[in-house]
């Protein structure tokens, strides 16, 4: 029986912890869990869940790369790499024609440009406030008394886009409450919330530019209303990858784990 050559990527974000097991250039297991109070434990839980999904054990892993904001507490990882580099590699794996990434995570938003090999050529980040992040949508879902997972679908039923001018979470919350009090249709308010974020993201891209294909990664990428708002506001078409866009960071980390292991092996021979 041949020896297992498996690699893992673990992406501990502020809201979700993701892990991917990679073998023979393919994803053989993955997991997405809610990040707990301790990022190290969250990373390990995600890793174990992905291993179980893949039918592998920790001992089968040759190399682990940690990424995400929790990478600073990842003693289980052989190496840590920023989520910017990992998302680029992951998006390139899921959709090789990707040249631009919109990554919306729980606590920040990134505009990433990459070359044809999936290497980062430029990036810009918004992490000064919650605007344009999953946290912003969570707060707004709470105000609208709907589940975060329903927000996107609801926005598609809007008959008009009500402007939510502020992207400051606190002010936008007040603005939304005022719109509810005025008796505005919920779907129209929700689509306004999505457009407020899309406008903010559009501004972020003025710093790095946009080139097709555009890949939307991160947990918020699963929100169909956010996808539509980005396409409408930015005048773009988002790529439709087969894989899960929330796993892009973990996939990139797993690919980098395989590359790091190969490099180490070759250098050891040399």
């Amino acid at each position: 029986m041949s020896e297992s050559v498996a690699f893992a990527g673990v992406d501990v974000g502020s809201l979700g912890s993701k892990s991917v097991i990679f073998e023979d250039g393919k994803i053989i297991g993955s997991s997405i869990l809610r990040t707990g109070l301790k990022s190290e434990e969250s990373g390990l839980d995600a890793l174990d869940a992905a291993l179980e999904d893949a039918g592998r054990r920790r001992g089968d892993l040759k190399y682990i790369v940690g990424t995400g904001y929790g990478r600073i507490s990842a003693p289980y990882a052989d190496k840590t790499v920023t989520e910017i580099t990992c998302h680029a590699r992951g998006a390139h794996f899921l959709h090789p024609k990707t040249r631009t990434i919109i990554d919306m995570g729980g606590q920040d938003c990134k505009a990433i440009r990459l070359d044809e090999e999936g290497n980062v050529t430029d990036f810009a980040m918004n992490d000064k406030c919650a605007a344009g992040t999953g946290r912003f949508l969570e707060v707004m879902a709470n105000v609208m008394k709907v589940g975060i997972e329903d927000l996107g679908e609801l926005s598609l039923n809007a008959t008009e886009v009500l402007p939510v001018s502020s992207t400051c979470t606190v002010f936008a919350e007040s603005e939304t409450i005022s719109l509810i009090a005025r008796g505005e249709k919920s779907e129209n308010i929700i689509v306004g919330i999505h457009h407020a974020i899309a406008n903010r993201i559009h501004g972020l891209f003025s710093r790095v530019g946009i080139e097709n294909d555009v890949f939307f990664s991160g947990g918020v990428a699963k929100n169909v209303g956010m996808r539509k708002a980005l396409e409408d506001v930015m005048g773009i078409r988002l790529a439709q990858p087969e894989g899960d866009p929330q796993l892009a960071g973990a996939i990139g980390a797993a690919i980098l784990a395989q590359e790091a292991w190969s490099k180490k092996k070759i250098l050891a021979v040399v």
Binding site: Y69, T82, I84, T85, D108, N119, V120, F123, M125, D127
Partner: peptide
């Protein structure tokens, strides 16, 4: 903003 800057710098240096 220390950790946010660290992420930017690390990503820049990685690239």
């Amino acid at each position: 903003d220390i950790e946010a800057i660290r992420t930017r710098l690390e990503a820049f240096i990685e690239s």
